[in-house]
Design a protein around this nucleic acid. Structure first.
Lengths: 197, 197
DNA sequence: AAAGAAATTGACACGATGTCAATGACATAA
DNA sequence: TTATGTCATTGACATCGTGTCAATTTCTTT
């Protein structure tokens, strides 16, 4: 059984080395040569475990995705508008805080999403998962008479997540002209006033 | 004076050829070789007029930018909330319609913005121009008692534009799960209910 | 310990980039 | 008209990154 272990270990060496190099050089400037050098393995070895640079990055990306999913899946069952506002504000904060916490990796992710179609696809999955979940929450609120009924949950969810996502990306930039707290407050307020009644 | 004319003509040949090739192959797959071949010029010539592929694309990008700017600068001086809603809805429609109209180029632009830092910078300029202009409109509405005064115009403008922008990108995709009109209506309604009083 | 299987390797072919010395084409002055 | 300098054009070249694959090393099994 030592054979497979060694192989897995090599795979891990690649991912770990890639993580370092990606954070150091960004997505596009990173080369396979840099990664295998950092991992102390031969050039061809990288291609045994991954198709290309993009695939290696996806591996890294999926770790953070889990953290995002956890926030997306938080329970949401408010009885009043006030409670809904509080829950939403809390969720927005968690979302933006996670972005700031993982700032370095998210910067690389943004670059990767732009440059690699596989990375783009992966991110789109996260997004649609969020939107689907938010749409559920909106529908719930509508059923309970908390939210305006004539709006389509899916379209509301989409617009709402888009605003959040863009604020998130903005927060990963070196200098931002606003604070996380301000962003969370404005997002929540605009949204809840616009959709809840 | 024929000297400069010829040079300008060559430059234009490059841009025109690049436009074709970019639309055909997308941003990343396009190579200098393809462009100079389409333009019927020598390889080195492209580098006389542009630093690289990115610079050529910026030239093309700036044409469409003008159309966006025109929409951003539309006059906004409503006397009532109803009038504001109508103006905003109209502007959103124009914005999204322009996106659909220029769909092919916008798809390439999206790719370029992701892959090229120069293109990203250029797009950011458009965005900030929009946000600055919207912030003015919000401030105007607040002064005239149409909009909630405790919100910061710049943050409101940012969130609002982000939602619009993402819907715009979505509308350039091959198949979209909603109509332009639905998107415009929901955007406008969520926004005006959230910010106007 | 021999044979087979699995893991590792780096040299190679290929394609794209950006540079630059050489060439070609035009304008101006004699 | 010619000659001379200037500007425009060119493609061969050096460089770099990619992905492949035949050869080699390392382990496992008999």
């Amino acid at each position: 059984m030592k054979r497979q272990q060694k192989a897995q270990q090599t795979r891990q060496k690649i991912v770990a080395a890639a993580y370092d190099v990606f954070l150091q050089n960004g997505f596009q400037k990173t080369t396979i040569t840099q990664i295998i050098k950092q991992a102390n393995i031969g050039y061809g070895t990288a291609y045994v475990y991954f198709q290309n640079k993009d695939e290696i990055f996806i591996d890294i990306m999926e770790d953070v995705m889990q953290k995002f999913y956890a926030i997306a899946e938080l329970p949401f069952a408010p009885k009043t508008k006030g409670e809904a506002v509080r829950l939403i504000h809390h969720q927005v904060r968690l979302f933006l805080e996670l972005a700031v916490q993982e700032k370095a990796l998210l910067q690389v992710m943004k670059e990767a999403i732009g440059a690699s179609s596989i990375a783009a696809k992966t991110w789109k999955q996260i997004r649609e998962r969020f939107i689907a979940r938010i749409a559920e929450d909106v529908a719930y609120s509508q059923k309970n008479g908390l939210a305006k009924r004539h709006l389509q949950p899916k379209l509301v969810a989409r617009g709402w997540f888009y605003a959040n996502e863009m604020y998130m990306w903005e927060l990963t930039e070196p200098s931002v002209p606003f604070s996380l707290e301000e962003a969370a407050r404005h997002l929540t307020e605009m949204y809840t006033n616009g959709v809840y009644s």
